[in-house]
Design a protein around this nucleic acid. Structure first.
Lengths: 249, 249
DNA sequence: CGACGCCTTGATCAACTTCAAATTTTGTGG
DNA sequence: CCACAAAATTTGAAGTTGATCAAGGCGTCG
């Protein structure tokens, strides 16, 4: 079931011009778009901000829906999915904290937005952000930078979808998750462990495959000792380079 | 063979602060990024601008190359292509006049940039545009808008690459070209005629197929009377809706 | 315990690729 | 303008990959 952002949890600091502590903590850890705002703008934004929680697989925004609010992802993973006329699904983007969520300058969404895992977001009205964008070139600059990052990722996946085998895609997906789950802690030699934030079905929709093929390729990687899997979701990669090699990268 | 932008044709109006006539004519027809500049900025940009011509299939920028100049496409079609480690190719974007060419804020290209058809571009140093961007929020806004458009197109093609059949992809590609070749003249009922700006090989690389499959699907569309083809490149679409239906859209 | 959701495994099948010509189009020199 | 060679496209036959169809296993939650 899809639900638009509703004001579920009015902030206690509504009439307080101090920067919300949660924002400060969040921005310290990450480098979200809010970092582009000065304290005054930040509290202006905070005045209109509400926090929301969504369970895994809850719908946030339906394809074609009018979008009145933007959001920042505080935690969790969000999937952007497109459907063909007859119902085939393709996930066209995955977003992680602290990504900005929403299509600037457009009133409606071009795809479904759904929680892949449990998710916490901060949302605020389109108008407020649009106004801040006009005041602060740095803010638009950051939004532009995120858009460019999404475009790079989309193009990387176009290469995978168009030209890579099922095995390469699955291995490449695991690399992608490994790099995004813990944004900083990566590229070191030792073993890497992480949770796949998607079901097999979501993985299939992301990779342009069926769940059966995804499962078979994971088994192959396991049998080749490239990965270990526990509880379906936990992946251990003893040697990331071997996984990258399997991804054809 | 790849060649970087070289200064091949110094402008006669280098020391003339008037807006180059070619720019005025170009901007009147299109709505390129230059439209965001005031006359003074435009002539500042023009002072550093040179025109270039590339033959079809000439390389403009190699993957990983350092990019010192940005450009506007004046005419023709440009393809952005990625390669896997072992040489498989995927075209991840097609750009048409008056698109901006270049990756803002990045020094090097993430893919090969090649002329699909004969192409004319205006190029200028990165630094000059970066400086203008800082002065003019409207300019960054336009660049951002183009990036968003490219992202939308990339995601549309992700759906096609991941979930659509060869026949749907080829039909969808023809719709895409029909809409881009003559940006305005579209969506009318009558027959539409256009030239495919790509070889079969480029089409295959764009669609994630082989040239044989592309050819067979075109033959099918021809036999189904959805299109007519003359000289391999000229396509006549009697009824665009039938083609869109074949594309699964 | 039993039912349901999620994942894995196996057997068969279809779509697309690969390999191999044949055919058409394009470019060049006489 | 024609002849010819080279390049691009089409067509055909055989081979693979991944999809589809069909069970079966494992965990979780009532």
């Amino acid at each position: 079931m899809l639900m638009d952002f509703a004001v579920t949890e009015p902030r206690s600091d509504i009439h307080n011009s101090a920067i919300p502590i949660v924002c400060r903590a969040f921005e310290a850890r990450h480098k979200g778009v809010c970092g582009a705002l000065n304290p005054q703008q930040l509290s202006e934004l905070a005045r209109h901000t509400t926090k929301h929680k969504f369970d895994a697989s809850a719908g946030l925004i339906a394809d074609g829906a009018k979008v009145e609010r933007y959001a920042n992802i505080m935690s969790g993973v969000i999937k952007l999915a497109k459907l063909t006329a007859d119902g085939r699904q393709q996930i066209v983007g995955l977003q992680f904290a602290p990504d900005f969520l929403g299509r600037p300058f457009s009133e409606k969404s071009d795809f479904d937005v759904e929680a892949a895992t449990d998710v916490r977001v901060c949302s605020f009205p389109r108008d407020v952000l649009n106004k801040l964008t006009q005041e602060s070139p740095e803010l638009e600059h950051r939004l532009h930078a995120q858009t460019l990052k999404e475009l790079d990722e989309a193009r990387d996946w176009m290469l995978a979808l168009g030209r890579k085998s099922a095995g390469e895609r699955v291995a490449g997906f695991l690399c992608f998750i490994a790099e995004h789950i813990n944004p900083e802690i990566e590229l070191k030699k030792g073993p890497v462990t992480f949770e796949i934030p998607l079901t097999r079905s979501d993985m299939a929709d992301f990779l342009g495959l069926t769940i059966e093929t995804v499962s078979r390729q994971l088994t192959k990687l396991r049998q080749a000792r490239v990965i270990e899997i526990e509880n379906n979701r936990t992946v251990i990669v003893p040697d990331l380079e071997k996984l990258q090699a399997a991804a054809g990268t």
